[in-house]
């Protein structure tokens, strides 16, 4: 008897979960793509059949779907394309995560400051944000790479710089609508310091917007990183990154089309997944942002 109720209780919970999932209309395909990407990034060393950097000149330029050891073929120095793609997921996820985190932190802090402080602080921060946002992101990234040199750190900074202004703008807008509400005024009267008001009372109210704008920024971050890698402004050549792989395929395009094709398809699919996912999150968390 007890087991029965236990089971039905579980079944209820399961059906309740399915019900709420249906109501939320989670976009399953994009969600699965994102989960697979994260999985590949974390377990790349286990999942990749070969070393992504190991060259094998005897088996160079093996076309895809010919051998089991390199199902997606090998590149012009015999590196395994599939393994490089899997490690590429790791590179892309790593750079995107740090760049996004930096962009979100800077954007949030400046957006909160700008919105809450107002006046000249607001003017200065928003002018800089507008100038940065309007400016072509690759151009901006090139200036940064020119200053800092090539490598992991510069590319993260470069991508972060192109990410923060949009976040700061959105957060500032939200702060403006929150800061005149009664609970903020009461906190001020109670003598709470501005920093505490912003952190304890304003910030939690802009969290939804922050989540939406962050998820909508992921696709751009991935694309910018890939473009910079492609142009040879990111990681050193030979490193497994999708943008670099596309560039490597250019050596002999007609004969080894697969080297460029696969990483590009993957970037497109991943960016689409994040676009759909971001749209869904926006519609379900914050429908008034529809026009963003």
């Amino acid at each position: 008897m007890t087991t029965l109720t236990g089971e039905s209780g579980q079944a209820n919970r399961l059906s309740a979960f399915m019900e709420s999932a249906r109501e939320l209309r989670v976009p399953w395909t994009p969600a699965i793509v994102i989960v697979v990407l994260v999985f590949l990034a974390i377990f790349a060393p286990v999942l990749a059949p070969n070393d992504p950097r190991e060259t094998d000149l005897l088996n160079a330029r093996t076309p895809p779907f010919q051998t089991l050891s390199s199902p997606l073929g090998t590149d012009f120095v015999g590196r395994d394309v599939l393994s490089r793609l899997i490690y590429g997921a790791r590179t892309s996820a790593f750079i995107s995560m740090f760049a996004l985190a930096a962009g979100v932190v800077v954007g949030t802090v400046l957006g909160l400051t700008s919105g809450y402080a107002g006046r000249w602080v607001d003017t200065i921060i928003m002018r800089i944000a507008d100038a940065t946002m309007g400016f072509p992101s690759i151009l901006l990234a090139m200036i940064i790479v020119a200053i800092l040199g090539q490598g992991l750190m510069p590319i993260i900074v470069a991508v972060a710089v192109s990410t923060w202004p949009r976040i700061a703008r959105m957060i500032r807008g939200e702060v403006l609508s929150v800061k005149d509400q009664d609970f903020v005024t009461l906190a001020k009267i109670a003598g709470v310091s501005p920093a505490v008001i912003v952190w304890r009372h304003v910030f939690p109210n802009v969290l939804n917007t922050l989540m939406v704008i962050t998820s909508l920024s992921v696709a751009g971050v991935i694309l910018t990183e890939a473009s910079l890698s492609f142009l040879g402004l990111g990681l050193p050549p030979g490193d497994p990154a999708w943008g670099i792989m596309v560039a490597e395929g250019r050596v002999s395009l007609l004969k080894t089309w697969w080297i460029s094709l696969f990483p590009g398809v993957i970037i497109t699919v991943v960016v689409m997944a994040f676009n759909f996912f971001g749209d869904w999150l926006r519609d379900s968390l914050d429908p008034k942002l529809r026009r963003v």
């Binding site: 890939a226 943008g243 094709l261 970037i267 960016v271 676009n275």
Partner: peptide, 12 residues
């Protein structure tokens, strides 16, 4: 058009 990286489309 919004998702495909331009450099890759160019190469294709």
């Amino acid at each position: 058009g919004l998702a495909a990286p331009q450099f890759w489309v160019a190469i294709m």
